[in-house]
Amino acid sequence: MTRLAIPKTYKLYIGGKFPRSESGRVYEILAKKGDFLANAAKASRKDAREAVVAARAAVGGWAGATAYNRGQVLYRIAELLEGRRAQFVDEIVQTEGVSVAAASAQVDEAIDRWVWYAGWADKYVQVAGNANPVSGPFFNISVPEPTGIVAIVAPQAGGSLLGLVSVVAPALVAGNTVVVIANETMPLSAISLSEVLATSDVPGGVVNILTGSPAEIAPWLASHADVNALDLVGAGAIDWVDLQIAAAETLKRVLPPENGPDAATPSIDRIVAFTETKTVWHTKGLI
């Protein structure tokens, strides 16, 4: 006789905790073949609001951590991912319906990508910043600083883990905090990643993961005055122009949707996209 399985109902990841949706709603996560896998929380606008509050509370600590420390914390996530590699492969095989080899390749690439971005934490400032030779007795330096809170619509196509890592990691490198709407139909990787994050050294609130409908939640994030930037990389299938228009109200920095296998290609540009160049002048006087 086979053992009776325990059907899982997953929750949101907000402020380092795992709350249910305040709406009480859930939706079914189905395997590629259509079988029921688990229930996911269906986030509401109020959950999005709570996530922004948590993300704002976390900005100071995360942006204020040393770059070396951020790099270490991000690398630690890669270590944990590596340890739970089998789980991620299994979930990808089920939700995406790909082969074990393909799923393994995706997980490996996601881990490597995380490592790659972790290594940028204490370097991107050197590459993107400048000492400026102004004509006068002034010290003048430009450095990129985190924009603040980045709201992200994760890629909605296959590659549910790699897509998520490819957009969350670069936003974290500079010290931004993130509210990310996971892949709607294939949220298991995101949910498992939240469990990884919760046991890692990433402070609560630095990454907030919402499962549910991007079409429903994204407009609230796009128009939220306390969100500083919007990554629409996975919003190609919804009314993303309206989101961009909503984001214009508070002049959010916006990255447009990307499609295809090259979406969110790893690049320092993705890090710098969510930074602000701050230029500091100071007088130089000998006497």
Partner: peptide, 23 residues
């Protein structure tokens, strides 16, 4: 803020980036 002037103000130079945060 995008430009911070310390012990000076309203200095501009083509080599020095200028622009804002937020709105």
């Amino acid at each position: 803020a995008g430009v911070i002037w310390a012990n000076t103000f309203n200095r501009f130079d083509p080599a020095s980036p200028f622009g804002g945060y937020k709105e």
